[in-house]
Design a protein around this nucleic acid. Sequence first.
DNA 1: TATTTATATCCCTTTATCACGATATAGTGA
DNA 2: TCACTATATCGTGATAAAGGGATATAAATA
Lengths: 122, 122
Amino acid sequence: MLRDFIKLSKAISDETRVRILKLLENQELCVCQLMFILEMGQSTVSKHLGILKNAGLIEVRKDWTWSFYKLSKEGMNTYNRKLLKFLSSILNDDSLILKDEERLREVIKKDIKILCNIGKRT
Amino acid sequence: MLRDFIKLSKAISDETRVRILKLLENQELCVCQLMFILEMGQSTVSKHLGILKNAGLIEVRKDWTWSFYKLSKEGMNTYNRKLLKFLSSILNDDSLILKDEERLREVIKKDIKILCNIGKRT
DNA sequence: TATTTATATCCCTTTATCACGATATAGTGA
DNA sequence: TCACTATATCGTGATAAAGGGATATAAATA
C-alpha cells in the first residue's frame, strides 16, 4: 500500500534515524547508549526509536531495566526487508557514520550502568 | 553521503511524488498532463517535479512549448538507480496507482493541445 | 512587437516534523 | 511501600514542507 511505503520512507528520511539504523547494524543498543553516541536528549532518542519501531524496522527486547533495540528480523514485509538490506550496503564510508561507530566502540567498552548515569548528568 | 541519501529519501516521502514516479514508469509526461491526472494545481505539480529533478530522479526534455519529464537514465548515482529499480517492483497493485494509470490511459488518448487548455480552465 | 501558452518561481496559509523540558509509567531494590 | 531508574509520552516553540493563487519568464505565434 502506498501509505505504508510513505510511512517507511518518512521513517528513513531523517539523519538521526539513519544513524540509529546504521548503529543497530553493529549490535543492539539501549536508549541511554544511543543518547551518549548521538549526543541527544532522552525524549528525542526515544521518539526516533518509536518512529522506527512503528515503521516495523526495529524491535525491542526488555532486559532488566533497559529496552534494547535491534533491527527487525522476522515478520517484516517486503519493503522493510529490502530496505534494511539496501541500507546495510550503503553509507559505510560516510564520515558521520564512521564517527558514530567510533563512539559505539567507546560505549561498548563501558559498563552500561555507569554510562547511563553519566548520560543522565549531562 | 548521508545528506544525499536523506535528500533522496525525502524526495520519495510524499504521496504525490511517488504517484508521479509511478506514472513516469509508463511514459514521459508534461506538467499539464500530470495536472489532469493528479487533479492538482500547476504550481504544485511543477514544484514536485522540481524536487524530483533536484534529487536526480527525473530529467526534462523540452519539446516545442512543453517540458516532458521522464525517469533519469544516465548519470545517476547508485542510490538513485537502485531506488528507481526498487520502486518499479512495488506498488503496482495499489489502488491509487492503478487509478492514476487508468487516468493516464485517458490522457494519452487526448490531443495534448486540447487537454492542456482543459486543464487550464478548471 | 504584442499576445498567448506552458512552466517556474514567489508568497502566503496550513499542517507536519524536530528537539527539548516536564511529566507519566513501569520495573527494581531497599 | 517508597525512592530510584530507564523509557515513553505530552506540550511547546522553531523550522520545514505542502498546496494554491499570483506573478515572472521564455518560447511560439499572430
